[in-house]
Simulated scan of single mutants.
Amino acid sequence: MRKPLLAAGAVAILSLGLAGCAADDGGSADGEWPDEITLSLVPSVEGEDLAEALDPLTAYLSDGLGIDVNGVVANNYAATVEALGSDQSQVIISDAGSLYNAIQQYDAQLVLRDVRFGATAYSAVAYTNDPDKYCDDEPVMATYDAGPAELSYCNGLEEAGASALGEGGPIGIEHLADAKGAKVALQSATSPAGYQYPVVAMREQGLDTDKDIEQIPVEGNNNAIIAVANGDAEIG
């Protein structure tokens, strides 16, 4: 059986930040249009698919803007912020938490926001391989449109056969209190949906996340799900 989704939580927004750019004329800090810019981002694919994912984007932007747009792959969202601050990149595609840091540290400006299947945001979700412990009802299957993928949901997150955008919540969040003593796969501490919001949610449910759970560090959404699927973690 596919692993159920336990709880939809706080929203994290994918954003593009542009530092040193005049909002009224679209040019550089001195008002001149640059000959080239470098874009830093964290792709949603890995390995040999990187070029296939990145090249069409930079080619599209180069054609549309009439300048050279170079793409640089970052290891994580925090690295995109540092690339912006050191002027190694003039544009970054990052998450909400890193965008906030870029604004605070380097006066970045939000100029675009991602829209995926009609959704401009997504919710943090918790996966489990123990539905008897964390689900009030029988898990049902619904299609997550952004995949598209058919996933198992419980606690009323989605109706059976529904089309899901990955938005909503918080739902079923009270069950995080049942995670005491469990292994929990968590992503980088800079990830709003993969670490920050889940940790805050667990603490609001009375858990000491440093003592009451065993944190299993993972890199990326895929590895959080794999950790649950393989039994390395009870929740991801």
Rank of each mutant, 00 (worst) to 15 (best):
M1F: 07
M1W: 06
R2A: 12
R2N: 13
L6G: 10
A8W: 10
A8S: 09
A8Q: 04
A10Y: 04
V11H: 13
A12C: 11
I13H: 11
L14Q: 11
L16C: 10
G17D: 13
A22G: 12
D24P: 09
S28P: 01
D35N: 08
S40W: 02
S40Q: 12
V42T: 15
P43D: 15
E46V: 15
G47K: 09
E48D: 11
D49A: 15
L50E: 13
L50N: 14
L50F: 12
A51N: 15
A51G: 15
A53S: 12
L54Q: 06
P56Q: 13
A59P: 02
L61R: 03
G66V: 12
G66W: 09
I67M: 04
I67T: 14
N70S: 03
N70L: 04
G71N: 10
G71C: 05
V72I: 13
V73T: 14
N75A: 14
N75R: 08
N76M: 11
Y77Q: 11
Y77A: 14
A78Y: 14
A79P: 02
T80H: 08
V81A: 08
E82H: 08
E82M: 07
E82I: 07
G85H: 09
G85L: 04
D87H: 11
D87T: 14
Q90P: 00
V91Q: 05
D95F: 06
A96Y: 10
G97F: 04
G97Y: 03
S98F: 03
L99D: 15
A102I: 14
A102K: 07
Q104M: 08
Q105G: 09
Q105T: 15
A108R: 01
A108F: 06
R113V: 09
D114V: 08
V115W: 09
V115P: 01
R116H: 09
F117L: 04
G118Y: 01
A119L: 02
A119K: 03
A119S: 07
A124S: 12
A124K: 02
T128R: 00
D132G: 06
K133M: 06
D136A: 04
D137K: 01
V140M: 09
V140T: 14
M141T: 15
A146Y: 05
G147A: 15
P148T: 15
P148D: 15
A149I: 11
A149C: 12
E150S: 13
L151H: 12
C154G: 09
G156E: 03
A162N: 09
G168Y: 03
G169Q: 05
I171W: 06
E174T: 05
E174V: 04
L176M: 07
A179D: 03
A179P: 01
A182C: 04
K183R: 03
V184I: 08
V184L: 03
A185E: 05
Q187E: 10
Q187D: 12
S188P: 02
S188Q: 06
A193L: 06
V199W: 08
V200Y: 06
A201Y: 01
M202H: 04
M202S: 04
R203K: 07
E204P: 00
G206Y: 02
G206W: 01
T209A: 08
I213W: 01
Q215E: 12
I216K: 01
P217Q: 10
E219P: 02
N221E: 10
N222V: 15
N223V: 05
A227T: 02
A227D: 03
N230C: 01
D232P: 00
A233K: 00
A233F: 00
E234S: 00
